[in-house]
Simulated scan of single mutants.
Amino acid sequence: MQGTHDSAKRRLLSCLSHGAIFFSTTILSVGVPIAITFISDDPVVQANAKESINFHFNVWFWGILILIPSLLTFGLLGWILFPLGYAIHWGLTIWALAHCFTKPDEPFRYPFIFRLL
């Protein structure tokens, strides 16, 4: 997927797409990759932005699924599931950022997520 696109710009926009979850886990985390999808014509950046959007939707989905049993057990199960969820979430995001820094010409694919886009 190499082309005539600027490698530094590709790296920056790809990392910004994946790292948007560190700004906020709300609408902003999906809004940044959506905006990048529209402003960039680079296919690698667009692939990274779409993958980031899918990952953010998965984080929300699994967060809701963790919240339900936590509420049913009056928070006891949440003491185990929420830290585990955050560790996986942050670990995968850091992995994506490291991949974008080291291999900017390859789009990153998160393992084990549902892809809507």
Rank of each mutant, 00 (worst) to 15 (best):
T102N: 14
H99D: 05
P69N: 08
I80M: 08
F74V: 01
H99W: 10
P111M: 02
A98E: 07
G85L: 13
T37D: 08
W95S: 03
Q2R: 04
K9Q: 11
Q2H: 03
F82D: 08
I36T: 10
V45A: 12
Q46Y: 05
H18R: 08
S70Q: 07
G91H: 00
F61L: 10
A96Q: 03
T73P: 04
F23A: 13
T73N: 01
L13S: 09
H89Y: 03
T93L: 15
I66R: 06
I34E: 09
I80D: 01
N48F: 00
V45P: 14
H18D: 06
S17F: 00
K50H: 12
W90K: 05
W62E: 10
A87W: 08
S40K: 12
H99Q: 11
L92Q: 06
I68T: 04
F101Q: 01
P107M: 04
F61A: 07
R11F: 07
L13H: 13
A49W: 01
C15G: 12
S17C: 08
I80Y: 06
W79G: 00
L72I: 00
I66V: 11
T25W: 11
T25L: 09
A8V: 09
S52M: 09
T102R: 13
A47W: 10
L84N: 02
H99Y: 10
R109M: 01
F112E: 13
G75I: 04
L72T: 01
R109A: 00
D41Y: 09
S7G: 05
T102H: 11
K9L: 05
